[in-house]
Simulated scan of single mutants.
Amino acid sequence: MISQKVAQQSLRRLAVQQPYALRWSLMNSASPAAVALGRNIQTRQAATSSNSSDPSKILAQQRLVRPVSPHLTIYRPQITWIGSSIHRITGLMLSGGLYVYASAYLASPLLGWDLGSASAVAAFAALPVLAKVALKATMAMPFTYHCMNGVRHLIWDTGAGLTNAQVIKSGWTVVGLSTISALLLAFL
């Protein structure tokens, strides 16, 4: 048992030495016991500073000269992560709008508002044609994009279309189809 420990220690000490140390010890026929006792290990002087300044000041100075990570500024925007971000944003917009309208609709009798369908239709009919188209396009674009991108994700759940080329192609297809369908809904 002791001989195994001595051999392990000698091998560990040889492993951390410079590559030529093993050859040197073999050429001079150093025994494992000599290696285990550390008689042939090279040492170096530790670099110390006689400066007695505050270590936190030294650390603050070192932080000032460190390079800053470039983060997203070095990456070219890709349809994959832009599409994912827009999908989340449109989902938040659509669900947030639904919650705000539902809450206002429930509170409308207490506040004296009329948010029924007849008043909404009358208010929309009073708008100019350009405002109607713009409002419908503003409502249709997030809805159509989120729906079509959701279908894309459902297709991915089956395991189809997951190569890089297919993901890029389907991303641009979703953008094109959602734009066309939003314009069609806006001009109806």
Rank of each mutant, 00 (worst) to 15 (best):
I2N: 07
A7F: 03
Q8K: 09
S10A: 15
R13D: 10
Q18H: 09
Q18A: 13
M27I: 10
M27D: 09
A34N: 08
A34F: 08
G38K: 08
R39I: 06
Q42M: 15
Q45Y: 08
A46G: 06
S49I: 08
S49R: 06
D54F: 04
D54S: 03
P55T: 13
S56R: 12
S56D: 12
K57E: 10
I58K: 06
I58H: 03
A60K: 12
Q62L: 12
L64N: 05
L64R: 06
V65R: 08
V65L: 13
P67S: 15
Y75P: 01
R76V: 14
I86L: 14
I89H: 07
L94A: 04
G97D: 08
L98K: 05
A102H: 04
L106H: 11
L106Q: 15
A107T: 07
G112F: 12
G116R: 08
A118E: 13
S119N: 11
V121K: 06
F124E: 12
A125V: 15
L130H: 07
K132C: 02
T138S: 15
A140I: 01
F143I: 04
T144F: 03
Y145F: 12
M148K: 04
R152N: 09
L154A: 11
I155A: 01
D157W: 05
V167Q: 01
I168S: 03
K169Y: 07
K169Q: 14
W172G: 02
T173I: 10
S181A: 10
S181R: 02
L185F: 05
L185K: 00
L185N: 01
